[in-house]
Simulated assay, not measured.
Amino acid sequence: MIQTIEVNIADILSRLETKIDKLENKIDYLTNEVNDVKINVAKLDEKLNSLDNRLEEKTNSLETSLNDKFSGLDKRLGNLEFIFRSIAGGIIIALILAAARYLFPNMTL
């Protein structure tokens, strides 16, 4: 019971060529998909760089604005401190003079 298998070589080659063509098509498709992914990654990278630059600009602008406002507040607080020191000094001098007038009523200043 030996069976002989007869196959035409042309049929085998035809089938192999068909399979190779299918594999080449799949490889081409995957190559195109990979290229599309690379393009999308490049676009995302550009967008991230753009966002990073915008964020840096906004941060610098905010920092400059806050520094200006804080320096203005510092000047105002310095002025208020001077005013309060002057008022406190005047009150202390007035209290000393009032105490001197009370303790020494006959003395003229």
Results as ranks from 00 to 15, higher is better:
38 K>H: 13
22 K>L: 03
28 D>R: 02
28 D>H: 01
35 N>V: 08
33 E>F: 05
13 L>R: 12
31 T>H: 10
33 E>W: 05
22 K>H: 03
19 K>I: 05
34 V>T: 14
26 K>L: 12
15 R>T: 03
19 K>P: 00
23 L>M: 12
8 N>A: 07
8 N>L: 06
12 I>H: 02
36 D>R: 14
15 R>W: 01
25 N>S: 09
8 N>T: 06
21 D>R: 03
23 L>E: 12
30 L>S: 09
30 L>Y: 06
15 R>V: 01
15 R>H: 03
8 N>D: 09
24 E>I: 03
34 V>K: 15
13 L>I: 09
6 E>R: 06
27 I>F: 06
25 N>R: 05
23 L>R: 11
25 N>C: 03
22 K>C: 00
30 L>I: 07
31 T>A: 12
27 I>C: 04
7 V>I: 10
26 K>W: 08
13 L>D: 14
36 D>G: 13
9 I>R: 08
13 L>G: 11
20 I>Q: 12
32 N>V: 04
34 V>G: 06
40 N>V: 09
6 E>A: 01
25 N>V: 03
9 I>V: 12
37 V>G: 07
16 L>H: 12
19 K>M: 06
26 K>Q: 14
35 N>E: 15
15 R>M: 01
35 N>L: 11
18 T>P: 00
38 K>L: 15
30 L>F: 05
20 I>F: 06
22 K>Y: 02
34 V>E: 13
39 I>Y: 08
21 D>C: 03
30 L>C: 05
8 N>V: 07
37 V>H: 12
24 E>C: 02
19 K>S: 05
31 T>V: 12
30 L>G: 04
6 E>S: 07
34 V>F: 10
7 V>N: 05
13 L>H: 11
40 N>W: 12
33 E>R: 13
25 N>I: 03
10 A>D: 09
18 T>C: 05
